[in-house]
Design a protein around this nucleic acid. Structure first.
Lengths: 144, 144
DNA sequence: GTAAACCCTATAAGGTCAATAGGAATTACC
DNA sequence: GGTAATTCCTATTGACCTTATAGGGTTTAC
């Protein structure tokens, strides 16, 4: 299951993507529109800023905007920030590989083989879905 | 990421599958062979028993054996017991559907669409991998 | 200069995870 | 029928994570 943080992040990002434009949007506006806890959202946006998913503008009339084109921000990008690796085991993570604690021999681990296939399948989906597609879906369905 | 409990469960089940035979195998033997915490394993096996993944034999010379053919126990079956639904959101879970807390309208939710696709991809893999295949792999590679 | 925004760190309640512990119930065997 | 070996059941514990909330510091437009 994804975390609440991930849900909030995705909703905030979709709001930014759907809203479009170049002018920064304030945390307060996003929080109210999407009904997200303001201070928690503040922390989440700060995390999304580090890898460049969003960019911030400080001072009066500051706010947040997407850090790159919406079509270049995948669901995988977002979930990796909020929830860590997509993989079901560190030993099959591509972005954050780590050897398992007491793994006998990785190359013959039957568990690893299954988890690796699962990771690849998940990653293929989540890396192919991006904010632009999702925002377009919402607009088509009249939700925005 | 899967839990430690899930790893232990899979290792214990693979041991039972590879060991084969009809006579029950004691917790103590599994724990020693796979180097799992004995008492923790006890709890895990109790959970695996409820849905019939393993069956127990009480009393002296009791122990555990698989509850059905190894080829009929998938990785998905095991992970659902130890870690809950495969889905990334309750609203896309097939086995344990639940509506999201403050979901505006499920049918148009762009987040849901992506998570649903991810669930289907994951489930397809994990439901196709079973203990018999995995145990056979281990034997072929000489790990057992 | 001041108000409005983001930035940074600390705190806290509640839950989950990964065990550990101790004894009750059951059964094979002599 | 007694005894030893095994599973079964419930409680407890410490560490960590999640989901916030709080308060002030820093920056910038006007």
């Amino acid at each position: 299951m994804i975390s609440q943080k991930a849900r909030y992040a995705l909703r905030a990002l979709l709001y930014l993507a759907a809203r479009g434009g170049d002018t920064p949007i304030q945390i307060a506006e996003i929080a109210e529109a999407e009904r997200l806890p303001r201070k928690f959202l503040e922390q989440i946006l700060a995390e999304l800023k580090k890898p460049g998913i969003v960019q911030s503008h400080r001072g009066r009339s500051g706010g947040y905007s997407l850090g790159r084109a919406a079509k270049d921000i995948s669901f995988a990008d977002v979930l990796r920030v909020t929830d860590g690796p997509l993989a079901l085991s560190p030993c099959v993570s591509v972005m954050a590989y780590r050897k398992c604690e007491d793994c006998f021999e990785e190359t013959v681990c039957a568990i690893r083989k299954a988890l690796l296939a699962a990771r690849d399948a998940t990653a293929e989906i989540l890396e192919s879905r991006n904010l632009a597609q999702a925002a377009a879906q919402l607009k088509r369905s009249g939700a925005i």
